[in-house]
């Protein structure tokens, strides 16, 4: 199973930062205890980066029995509707667009 892993298939192309941050800020194992720091502790991220990326909330087990979620327009809990307004920051009521770029 180690042969020809398809991991090489983005030759020379840098992955989009937004896709990377989706994964690095909301994915990955979160360790607790004895850390100096983990990004999971930094609520500020939800504020300062929320105009850039919005996924800081998936803590559920993605390998749990799948498909409790529905289609794009199904359970409204995560605003998956295709037409949904892009307002999905639940934790912060700070004025939008305060990122500096």
């Amino acid at each position: 199973m180690t042969a020809s892993r398809p991991t090489e298939s983005l030759p020379g192309r840098q992955v989009a930062l937004v896709d990377l941050l989706d994964r690095l800020l909301s994915g990955g194992v979160v360790l607790s205890g004895d850390l100096v720091l983990s990004i999971a502790d930094i609520d500020l991220v939800r504020i300062s980066l929320r105009a850039l990326i919005v996924s800081v909330d998936s803590e559920a087990d993605p390998l749990a029995p799948p498909d409790r979620e529905g289609t794009v327009n199904a359970p409204p809990d995560r605003e998956r509707t295709v037409n949904a307004p892009p307002d999905r920051e639940r934790t912060v009521s700070a004025p939008p667009d305060r990122e500096r770029m």
Binding site: V18, A51, L52, D57, S58, P62, P66, E79, P86
Partner: peptide
């Protein structure tokens, strides 16, 4: 076998 839904991407990036 498995899917995770990330929120749709919006904003400056």
């Amino acid at each position: 076998t498995h899917r995770v839904r990330h929120p749709a991407q919006t904003g400056a990036l």
